[in-house]
Every structure is written in C-alpha cells, then in structure tokens.
Simulated assay, not measured.
Amino acid sequence: MGKVRVGAFSVSVDGFGAGPDQSLDDPLGKNGEQMHGWFFPTRFFRTMIGKEDGETGIDNDFGTRAMTGFGAFILGRNMYGPIRGEWDGTDWKGWWGDNPPYHAPTYILTHHPHPPIEMEGGTTFIFVTDGIESALEQARAAAGDLDVKIGGGVSTVRQYLQAGLIDELHYAVSPVVLGQGEAMFQGIDLRALGYAPTEQVMGERALHVVLSKGDAK
C-alpha cells in the first residue's frame, strides 16, 4: 500500500493556503494566485499546459514530485469548482478543461450526490458523500501500490491532517502576504499530531518544507 501525501501545497508566509472570495474569476481566491508564482514558470507546469519551455531547478523538481507516483486523488468540493449547495444542473466538469492533470480516479468530497464524470486522459471524477474516510478507502483501493494525493483545498487538507491520515506533506512557502483567506494551520498542533520537518530546501521562488508523520522529537 502506498502513502497518503500532500504535494506542492502553496502557502503564504502568513499561513494562508487560499485567498478569500473564491469565484470563477478568482478560482484560488482574491490574490491566491500569487502563492503559486513559484510553480507557473517551471518546465513541469509549462508542459502540463502544452508548452515546450520552462525553467528547471529545485522548484521544477518539487513540482514534478508533487504529481508523480499517484494512483488516485482526493479533492474537496471547493477545489473542484465554485458551485455551492445542490448541483445546479450545469455541465461543470472542473477548472481544468476536457483533460484534467490527474489521469487517475479523482474523488470529490461533497454532501450532494452526483454521477461520476469520465474525462479525457484517464481522469474520472467520483463524488463521495459519506466522508473523508470513505473517500480514502476508495482511493487506496483504486491506487493499489501507488500513493494517494490529498489535493486540496485547505479545508480538505485540514480534515485529513486532524484525523492523522496523512503520511507526508510538502508545503511550498511563497514569499507573499495575503492578510486574509483560508488559514492552513490555525488550531492545528502539528507536533501533537506527530508531524515534524524531514526536508527543507530553498528553491528559486519558494521554500519547500516536507513534514512526515512519526518523526516528531
């Protein structure tokens, strides 16, 4: 069985993982896109959007690691889209177009049932209404020996963290201050949960910190 991991989760220096007021115009919340400035120039990201350029280096290496070795993904409802409450009958299929970057079963946490959606490239969105443990059980079964990625957003990562279900977290700390938004660590005692830093590397545009469970001193 593989690990349960969070990879390349960008946070601001004041501890926010997303800006406020998510919308179609601001899918990462107001000013939230600034936190991902380390990732957008990398060759890995540029390849994802069909380009042949981009920077190599530490940021690119961590970006590549963050999408490699996974057999299933778990996303929160907000990460999937801006629709709230009951599904409104639109043909919304996520932010990513016809070929999302997951290429594996991707489980969406929601309170409202929705039939699975098969996308190009091997991604199938599967909607889970009975909680984070059920989603993880299904994702582990689908992933086999590969890892499961908790893809976000902030609320979803916090829930899995507080339940002690994540083996490894990689945060990319970007040199930006949001001032407000979705707090990543508020009310969470990482040491008490058994997490400690096991890797810290300064990249070209972000500080990469990896936390692993069971290594707290």
Results as ranks from 00 to 15, higher is better:
residue 17 G to S: 06
residue 208 H to Q: 02
residue 150 I to V: 15
residue 72 A to M: 00
residue 108 I to R: 03
residue 178 L to Y: 01
residue 35 M to K: 07
residue 135 A to M: 12
residue 5 R to S: 04
residue 161 L to M: 15
residue 187 G to I: 10
residue 48 M to Y: 05
residue 214 G to T: 07
residue 212 S to L: 00
residue 186 Q to W: 03
residue 146 L to W: 05
residue 119 M to L: 14
residue 68 T to E: 11
residue 88 D to H: 12
residue 191 R to V: 12
residue 92 W to N: 12
residue 47 T to W: 10
residue 171 Y to D: 05
residue 47 T to N: 14
residue 27 P to L: 00
residue 158 R to L: 06
residue 171 Y to N: 05
residue 57 G to D: 02
residue 216 A to Q: 11
residue 52 E to K: 14
residue 155 S to Y: 07
residue 187 G to C: 04
residue 192 A to V: 00
residue 24 L to F: 00
residue 111 H to P: 01
residue 40 F to P: 00
residue 50 G to L: 03
residue 153 G to K: 09
residue 143 A to C: 02
residue 143 A to R: 03
residue 19 G to E: 04
residue 147 D to Q: 09
residue 14 D to F: 02
residue 98 D to M: 13
residue 101 P to N: 10
residue 14 D to I: 05
residue 195 Y to L: 00
residue 67 M to F: 15
residue 200 Q to D: 00
residue 99 N to E: 15
residue 79 M to P: 00
residue 122 G to N: 10
residue 49 I to C: 02
residue 203 G to P: 03
residue 186 Q to E: 15
residue 12 S to C: 04
residue 144 G to L: 06
residue 144 G to W: 07
residue 76 G to H: 03
residue 177 V to Q: 06
residue 209 V to A: 06
residue 121 G to D: 13
residue 114 H to D: 11
residue 177 V to R: 08
residue 98 D to N: 13
residue 194 G to V: 03
residue 157 V to G: 05
